Computed example of a mutant assay.
Amino acid sequence: MKETFLNLIDYIKNPVLEKDLNTDTKYRFKIFLHLLVISIATGLIISPIFVILDEIGFVNMDNHKIDEMFKNLSLFQILLTGGIIAPVIEELIFRAPITSFKKPASFKIGFYVFAVLFGLVHLTNFDITPNVLIAAPLLVLPQIILGAYFGFIRVKFGLIWSMLLHGCYNSILMIIGFGFE
């Protein structure tokens, strides 16, 4: 896991359009599981920021658009939408295009731009207020970081793998969320 984490950090510092030539399924699932754990851990490490913003009354975290969107859906429909449909669509929009940037400099820019855009689109989960705009970099920080993680596996293993990682990540968070309700 440590090696995967260090490779991920090195990659994010200097993304290059280079597939992982090891096509062994066991190897790929091992890296996938490492990335899933790293993704969940990243979210957990960053989440106290949201508690602080909510506690000081800077941003109302109770008024999240996702809750509103899912309120009339069954558990199955929520998991289908958040765990499969949304990740597939988002990966097609934000990760599929990054491999079309063939020159190293343009690839690096494209990689970062798509990670940031992925984060920024999640700002629509909030009621846009002046405080939300001020706190925007913090509010979408997890999605920007995850966008880079998903970009890493997309480049290394392919688009299906980023869809799978994104879907599993969302599903785990939704299941945890159901446990707290």
Rank of each mutant, 00 (worst) to 15 (best):
T81S: 14
K65H: 02
P87T: 04
I109H: 10
G147W: 02
V88S: 00
L44I: 10
T99D: 14
T129C: 10
K108C: 13
I175C: 06
F150C: 12
P87Y: 07
G158I: 00
Y169I: 06
G179K: 04
A41L: 15
E90C: 03
F58H: 09
P142W: 08
F157L: 09
V51A: 15
L117A: 13
G158N: 01
Q143H: 14
I128G: 06
D62S: 11
G57Y: 11
G57T: 12
M163E: 08
V51F: 11
I49L: 08
K108E: 13
I134D: 03
M163L: 09
H122M: 11
V116R: 02
Y112R: 08
I46W: 02
N60C: 10
K108L: 12
A86I: 15
F152G: 12
W161H: 06
F178M: 14
E55R: 09
L117F: 15
L165E: 09
I153F: 13
F101C: 10
F118D: 07
G177Q: 09
I145A: 05
L138A: 12
I172Q: 02
E55S: 12
Y112W: 13
M174W: 09
T124E: 06
I38H: 01
R154E: 08
K156I: 03
T99C: 09
F150Q: 10
I78K: 13
D67L: 13
L44F: 07
L164R: 02
N125L: 05
F114E: 04
V88I: 15
L73T: 00
L120T: 08
F58A: 14
I176A: 13
I176G: 04
F118T: 06
I46T: 00
D67G: 15
L79Y: 02
P142D: 10
S74N: 05
F180Q: 05
V59E: 09
S106A: 07
M69F: 14
D54H: 14
